[in-house]
Structures are given as C-alpha cells and as structure tokens.
C-alpha cells in the first residue's frame, strides 16, 4: 500500500479541500477568537500529525525490540524526526495564535510548557542516537528510550494540562471551544485536514526512509567490494 502513489494524491486533494472549505465555510462566532478559530484546521492538525507520527515511531520501536531488525529501528527514528518537525510547526503557529488571542507569544501554561518539554524529550532521543556508534546497541537503547519518551509526552500534553487549569482549550476549565465540539460544520473540515496533513508527514517520512536505505545500500556495496 505504501509503495503506491494514490495516497499522495489523496493528501493533496484533502489539503486543497481544507484550504477552500477551511477559509470559506461558516464557523461559530466566538468572542476574542473571531476568525482565528479556523486555525483549528492548521495549528491543531499539526499536533495531531505529530502525535500520529510519534505513535508510528513508538510502534516500530517496540517491534524492533521484538525482531532486532535494523530497518525497523530506521523506520522508528525517521518517524520521530518528522514528528518533531510537525511539533515545531505546531509551536510556531501556536505562538502566533497566542499573540493575537491571549496577548503574548508565550504564556506560562501547563499545556504550552508541556508541549515544549516533550519536544525537548524527543530532541534528547536524537542526541542519544547520535552519541552511540554501535548499531545494534544504539537501536536497542533508543528503542527503550523511545517508549519512555512517548509516555512522558502523553503525561506532559495529555494528562498534566487536564489536571490543572489551562488557558489552552480542551483542558481544565476553558469553555472557548465548547461550541466547536458540537459543530458538525467544523468537523467536516477538521477531520479531512488531519488526514491530509498527516499524509504529508507520512510522505516526508517515506522519502527520509528511502534516502537512508540508499545510503545504507551504498555502504554495504562498499564493504562487500573491500572483502573481495
């Protein structure tokens, strides 16, 4: 399925639909947010894309611990790289949105600090990978760390913000998105937007894997020639 090309066209079509419907369809009229509620299709889907890619990374990390195949480890690390890239986009877009709704680029909020902290946890994952030279050892240690990183991220962005008050919608005591939860008009754009952006992420993930495999094939050919 991943070798075929149709889902890449699907990604582009879904995104075109997102842009047109996202800007033109009616949205609930909310104070302070005004039209920026349309950022739901862009900012929020970045985070959904990040979480989906990091779940892929987690799945391949766990599978590596079972099969010890270095290719599985490669899939896991490349997924994490694209996931963190989406996380950075989420942070940047969220900061701009915060500036014009909450009045500051960054507020000391449990959701925001949690998101920043979980990105740092994943940056530590890449540093860990780069600091280990032996392949099997690197793969095994980083697979275990990846499970830890994912559970830490879930605590930071899913659990802790819900336990305290947060400015960010979807957490303790903020009703500003209460209306959208029921708004089927927005769902009609929101879900295709998530699928579209995530497929773009998967596409980049696939390109990264293919590049890494070419590199690996090059070294294997080199080694086999040396042995001859």
């Amino acid at each position: 399925m991943m070798r075929s090309v149709w889902w890449k066209y699907a990604a582009i079509i879904l995104l075109i639909y997102t842009f047109i419907a996202g800007f033109l369809l009616d949205v609930p009229r909310l104070p302070i947010l005004h039209e920026t509620i349309r950022n739901l299709y862009f900012h929020v889907s970045m985070w959904f894309g990040m979480i989906i890619l990091l779940v892929c990374s987690l799945v391949y990390s766990i599978r590596y611990l079972g099969n010890s195949d270095l290719k599985t480890d490669l899939w896991a690390s490349e997924a994490a790289k694209v996931g963190v890239f989406f996380g950075f986009l989420g942070l940047a877009t969220g900061m701009l949105w915060a500036k014009y709704t909450w009045g500051a680029w960054w507020v000391n909020d449990s959701k925001l600090n949690g998101a920043a902290a979980s990105i740092l946890v994943y940056l530590a994952y890449f540093m860990l990978r780069n600091s280990l030279d032996e392949e099997q050892k690197r793969a095994r240690i980083s697979a275990v760390y990846s499970i830890f990183a994912f559970s830490l991220m879930m605590v930071f962005i899913m659990i802790l913000p819900r336990l305290t008050d947060s400015l960010h919608p979807g957490n303790g005591g903020n009703p500003s998105f209460g209306k959208y939860d029921l708004d089927s008009n927005m769902r009609m754009v929101f879900y295709p937007a998530i699928i579209g952006w995530t497929l773009i992420g998967v596409w980049i993930w696939q390109i990264r894997i293919r590049m890494a495999l070419i590199k690996e094939a090059m070294y294997t050919l080199e080694d086999s020639r040396k042995q001859e």
Binding site: L33, R38, N39, L89, T101
Partner: peptide, 28 residues
C-alpha cells in the same frame, strides 16, 4: 493582524506551515 476578524492570523499561520514544509523540503 486584528482587522477583518483577525483572518490575517489564520493566513500567517498557514504561511508559517507552508514556509516550514518548504524549508524542510529544501533541506532534504
């Protein structure tokens, strides 16, 4: 940024994403 119901905030967010993806593609 606050005119027309803050719609330019949405446009800027979309431009940030587009710029980010474009930059990433150039890096790749």
């Amino acid at each position: 940024m606050r005119s027309s119901g803050k719609i330019y905030v949405v446009i800027s967010v979309l431009l940030i994403i587009l710029g980010g993806i474009a930059g990433y593609l150039f890096y790749l």
